[in-house]
Simulated scan of single mutants.
Amino acid sequence: MNDLVTYAYAVARADDMLHVRAAVLKGVADSPVHLVPGSHDDTLVLVVSHVPAQDFQEDALKLHLEDLDWLEAVARAHHGVIEAMAVHTTVLPLRLATVYLDDTRARDVLDARRALFAERLAHLAEHVEWGVKIHVEPSSAPAAPAPQRGEALSPGRAYLRDRRQQQSVRDSVYQDARQAAETIEALGRRYAVERARHRVQQGVLAGPVGENVVNDAYLVPREHCEKFRSEVLHAADGLRGVRIEVTGPWAPYSFAMPSVVADDAAAGTEP
């Protein structure tokens, strides 16, 4: 087995500036980035670099994916290459840890999928991805009213009353979150051309405060980006306990058909 394998970041349309930009980039494992053109048509290229084979063999990769420091370093490098290329041109991002035995095998995949890659790049041209998350924070909602003067309740009844009031506040916050979600969905229909629903984030990924209840991505034409972002951020105005987070603009990760390469390269070195 070779000491190095080919790590693929994205598909893009070739031009002279793309080669210049790739020549100054470092990717995963601090490896220099280069472009792999097709065999018979160099209008499309794969953005790749060479990485140590031992880190991306199936068994080794499974262990690495449990190492958060290693995973973060690879993800940052992967994302950095894609975003640097996306500044110049439309890119079709590939999944994290998409690797091939060598550049020849990567070229074979590019040749086999050329029509599909070209169609998707044309669809994504002049569009970017925005991430939209909705968080609920019941603790920041209005407190329940204090008991009336002279009102005397047993400890048990007081506990039940407080629990009902807390539940009422929570129900109100979640209802407001649904309202914000409906407003954002309407804005998506107005400004975006595609929407992707992702699993809500939990634990450390969800952040220190609140609960993530919506985690969506929208594919938005560049000309509508400012309006989309501004109006989404105002979708929770007047709603207590609801927080909206907007991230982007990103290369269109959620709309790049990651399953395109699933038959040709799994995460890890090809057999």
Results as ranks from 00 to 15, higher is better:
residue 119 E to I: 06
residue 100 Y to L: 06
residue 109 V to L: 05
residue 78 H to S: 06
residue 102 D to W: 02
residue 87 V to W: 12
residue 63 L to S: 12
residue 72 E to S: 15
residue 84 A to K: 00
residue 105 R to D: 14
residue 84 A to D: 04
residue 110 L to M: 06
residue 68 L to Y: 08
residue 75 A to S: 11
residue 67 D to R: 03
residue 110 L to R: 02
residue 120 R to N: 07
residue 111 D to L: 02
residue 91 V to E: 00
residue 91 V to F: 02
residue 99 V to G: 00
residue 72 E to P: 02
residue 98 T to Q: 03
residue 56 F to N: 04
residue 100 Y to C: 13
residue 114 R to K: 14
residue 74 V to F: 00
residue 62 K to Y: 14
residue 100 Y to R: 04
residue 122 A to K: 12
residue 117 F to K: 01
residue 73 A to M: 12
residue 59 D to Y: 06
residue 66 E to T: 15
residue 90 T to R: 08
residue 74 V to Q: 03
residue 68 L to F: 12
residue 122 A to L: 11
residue 104 T to L: 14
residue 117 F to T: 03
residue 117 F to A: 03
residue 104 T to P: 07
residue 106 A to L: 00
residue 73 A to R: 09
residue 118 A to L: 15
residue 81 V to R: 02
residue 112 A to T: 02
residue 61 L to N: 11
residue 64 H to A: 08
residue 98 T to M: 06
residue 124 L to M: 07
residue 96 L to N: 03
residue 79 H to Y: 10
residue 69 D to H: 07
residue 98 T to L: 06
residue 89 T to Q: 12
residue 119 E to D: 10
residue 119 E to L: 11
residue 93 P to V: 13
residue 123 H to Y: 10
residue 99 V to N: 00
residue 84 A to R: 03
residue 70 W to T: 08
residue 92 L to G: 02
residue 57 Q to L: 10
residue 58 E to T: 15
residue 84 A to W: 01
residue 116 L to E: 12
residue 89 T to D: 08
residue 59 D to M: 08
residue 84 A to C: 10
residue 107 R to E: 04
residue 58 E to P: 04
residue 103 D to Q: 05
residue 65 L to H: 08
residue 87 V to N: 12
residue 119 E to Y: 09
residue 105 R to P: 05
residue 103 D to Y: 00
residue 54 Q to E: 14
residue 68 L to N: 14
residue 80 G to Y: 01
residue 54 Q to P: 12
residue 96 L to A: 11
residue 92 L to W: 08
residue 89 T to V: 04
residue 82 I to W: 01
residue 75 A to M: 11
residue 111 D to M: 09
residue 115 A to D: 14
residue 108 D to N: 15
residue 65 L to S: 07
residue 69 D to F: 08
residue 114 R to L: 10
residue 77 A to I: 06
residue 111 D to G: 01
residue 92 L to Q: 03
residue 65 L to G: 04
residue 61 L to D: 11
residue 85 M to S: 05
residue 113 R to P: 07
residue 59 D to I: 15
residue 117 F to N: 01
residue 57 Q to H: 15
residue 104 T to V: 09
residue 63 L to D: 13
residue 66 E to F: 12
residue 66 E to I: 12
residue 77 A to S: 09
residue 92 L to R: 01
residue 102 D to L: 07
residue 120 R to Y: 09
residue 70 W to C: 04
residue 58 E to F: 05
residue 123 H to R: 09
residue 78 H to D: 09
residue 105 R to Y: 03
residue 64 H to L: 14
residue 76 R to S: 15
residue 116 L to F: 11
residue 119 E to P: 06
residue 85 M to K: 06
residue 75 A to Q: 13
residue 55 D to I: 03
residue 106 A to M: 06
residue 119 E to S: 12
residue 87 V to P: 01
residue 73 A to S: 13
residue 54 Q to D: 14
residue 93 P to D: 06
residue 114 R to P: 14
residue 123 H to L: 15
residue 91 V to R: 00
residue 120 R to L: 08
residue 82 I to K: 01
residue 83 E to Y: 00
residue 64 H to T: 05
residue 119 E to V: 02
residue 108 D to S: 15
residue 81 V to E: 02
residue 77 A to V: 02
residue 95 R to W: 01
residue 69 D to M: 12
residue 77 A to W: 01
residue 89 T to K: 02
residue 61 L to P: 02
residue 79 H to N: 09
residue 110 L to S: 03
residue 53 A to R: 07
residue 120 R to P: 05
residue 78 H to K: 10
